[in-house]
Amino acid sequence: MAGGVEQKMIGQAVLKPRQQVEKAIKDAILAGELESGEMLPPETELARQFNVSRTTLREALRTLSSQHLIAKVPGARGGNFVRSVDYRSLGTVMTEAVDNLLALGSIEFDEVAEVRQNLEVPSVRLAAANRSEKDLTELSEIVHRQKTATVDDPEIPDLDRQFHTSIARASGNRVLASFVSSLHNATEPVNYLDLSPEVGRETVRQHVSILRAIKTRDPDAGEEAIVEHLTYLREHIRTYRKH
């Protein structure tokens, strides 16, 4: 107030050169002007375009990299590339964050496994309600491959990942799918199991029960089956990790 008259607000904070560079590149990515996988111009050219020093430019690029908007690839054919910006990239960011926290000991494995179970229950229930014929075909193919695989098949961990993430996608909720995928990648239950033929057969039997519930659109049976499955896995993981 000046002399009792309210002053009109027309000013705003002036961005520093580094922040201006960050904002311009970020806006271009989010607007689709820079597409996923596209390589940014060389750093010398970008510095020239923005009329900033290479130090300022590199600081801006480091910030954009920490935000998972770009990735720096080393080598003669490397450079700064635009990363995917969609619901799948959310899962990637979460996986990296959870992996780092587990490695640092900031969170416990059992905490991640517990949250994963609490997310996979609604995931299966929603999949039972929303699944398409395409989803059923995909899940059936995965289970068939699991039935015919031997316990020492290196494809087993990836088949397990595919099964759980396919259910999450069938839920129709892309955010939920990203969360389930990231937590599954962090826990990687099959990699912790002493995968004997007996454990392998039991795991596949449980997958069949889950798939049957989704196929018959029975969310209650789906919840019962996924809880049995994840509880079974957690018990075996806990036993295996003690040795």
Rank of each mutant, 00 (worst) to 15 (best):
G11F: 14
V121M: 10
R116C: 01
S36A: 15
R174E: 08
A186K: 06
V143R: 07
V227T: 12
A71P: 04
V85F: 07
R54V: 15
P157W: 01
V121I: 15
E223V: 08
Q67F: 03
Q12V: 09
A128K: 09
H236V: 01
D160M: 05
L34D: 03
M39A: 11
A2G: 01
D158H: 14
P219Y: 05
A170H: 07
D194P: 01
I107M: 03
A149Y: 00
E133R: 15
E59W: 15
N118P: 03
T63G: 04
H184T: 13
L126H: 02
L183D: 08
R241Y: 08
P42C: 05
S209K: 05
L46W: 05
G37D: 11
A186W: 14
R58A: 08
S178G: 12
S84Q: 15
G79H: 08
M9F: 09
R125T: 04
L104E: 02
R58C: 05
K8Q: 05
S178P: 00
D160H: 02
V21A: 02
V175I: 14
Q162A: 13
V204N: 01
E38M: 15
D99P: 01
N185D: 15
H236Y: 01
F163I: 02
V14P: 02
A221I: 13
S209M: 06
V180L: 11
L61W: 10
E223P: 07
L90F: 10
D218Y: 03
A60R: 06
A97R: 13
N185Y: 10
D86V: 12
V93A: 14
V143E: 13
I210S: 01
T56I: 05
A28V: 03
P74A: 11
V227Y: 04
V5T: 15
L183F: 15
A60Q: 05
A31K: 09
V52N: 05
D110E: 11
D152K: 03
